[in-house]
């Protein structure tokens, strides 16, 4: 009975996730195909006007590029498209012909996941600890100071923080010497002279190159975790079961981990997965600023070069990433809090 409940819960969430991905896939298809002056029509027009191709030829070229058979009915095209999406085949890039979109994404996405994930994790750990400490010490003088800094940080847009860090670490020559980081050497994901793989030189180099983006994500996200955790911990601290745990003579460390910590983290764990998705979407500007070769920079290139298959692929991958992370968050939440499953069962 209990196991059934859990399985049912996971299956329900899984179906919901697949449904969301299907809806987004469909929207992307119709956006590209059906809108007035949609990319396909514009491409055909462009080929006809600029290169003097016949309508037939232009359409044939477009079908090849977008991997759509424009002569078939809309429904047939749609079904073919869904089949391609399931195989994760988005056709070839327009800007670098012959290179599959998936290959580009597979090349870029890990770097964005690395910087965003690292930054978010770091900000989460710092913010959660600071927030919990502030909640315990909320009668101390530094509580409003730290909370003030946290809400200040959480309200600055991340690209401003990026620019500030860039100037702080890479431009200003402190004490007349060199800037702290040689930023012109830190463009890209890693230096030319290291071999990618599991070796110390490469890992160190990758971290050096990713340092500023990671710092940016950390600084821009840390404030929100401090505030969320502080609020959540304060309300948990005044809960009856925490007070009673104290009266029961349970050791303070045990109370912190089993009674306060776990319950205070509950509402925040979902937020973590949501943020992951948002920041991957927002990595566009940060990666451009630091010339970091991630998915955001690639999306920017695809947009300015009107590389529709690539854009389509990136959008879809981003959506899938967000949907999967919120799926994982829900599962995680249910594991942490038995009440979620119970509600679902009724």
């Amino acid at each position: 009975m209990k196991i059934n409940n859990t399985v049912l819960f996971i299956i329900k969430r899984l179906l919901k996730m697949l449904f969301t991905i299907w809806v987004v896939t469909t929207i992307i298809f119709f956006l590209i195909r059906l809108m007035p002056s949609n990319p396909v029509d514009r491409y055909v027009e462009e080929q006809m006007v600029q290169y003097g191709l016949s309508a037939e030829e232009a359409r044939a070229k477009a079908s090849f590029l977008f991997s759509m058979d424009l002569d078939k009915s809309m429904l047939e095209q749609y079904i073919t498209y869904l089949g391609q999406v399931i195989r994760l085949d988005f056709g070839d890039s327009l800007l670098s012909p012959g290179v599959p979109v998936m290959a580009i994404i597979a090349e870029r996405l890990p770097w964005t996941l690395f910087t965003v994930g690292f930054g978010l994790l770091l900000s989460f750990i710092i913010g959660i600890s600071a927030g919990a400490i502030l909640a315990y010490r909320r009668d101390k003088w530094y509580e409003p100071v730290v909370s003030g800094i946290a809400s200040f940080l959480s309200s600055i847009p991340d690209f401003l923080i990026a620019i500030f860090l860039l100037i702080l670490f890479g431009v200003v020559a402190w004490g007349g010497g060199n800037p702290i980081l040689p930023i012109e050497l830190l463009r890209g994901n890693y230096s030319m002279d290291v071999t990618p793989g599991f070796n110390f030189a490469f890992i160190k180099d990758a971290i050096m190159h990713g340092f500023l983006p990671i710092m940016t994500y950390t600084v821009s996200q840390v404030g929100i975790w401090v505030l969320l955790m502080k609020g959540s911990t304060i309300s948990t601290l005044s809960a009856d079961y925490v007070t009673l745990a104290k009266v029961r003579g349970i050791k303070p460390r045990r109370i912190l981990s089993a009674y306060v910590g776990r319950n205070a983290l509950l509402p925040i764990s979902t937020e973590f997965a949501m943020r992951l998705g948002f920041i991957i979407g927002g990595s566009l500007i940060i990666e451009q600023l630091f010339v970091y070769q991630g998915i955001g920079l690639e999306l920017l290139k695809a947009t300015s070069g009107q590389d529709y298959p690539l854009m389509q692929g990136i959008f879809l991958i981003m959506t899938i990433a967000i949907v999967i992370s919120s799926f994982l968050a829900e599962i995680f939440y249910a594991v942490l809090d038995p009440r979620i499953k119970a509600k679902e069962g009724n």
Partner: peptide
């Protein structure tokens, strides 16, 4: 020992009741 007024939320909501009993004895 003390029992609160309206003891509806005196148990840890994310643990089974047995844990509250075990925790209490283990602490002493």
């Amino acid at each position: 020992a003390m029992m609160f007024q309206a003891s509806q939320s005196s148990f840890n909501p994310v643990k089974k009741i047995r844990m509250d009993f075990i925790d209490t004895v283990k602490a002493h």
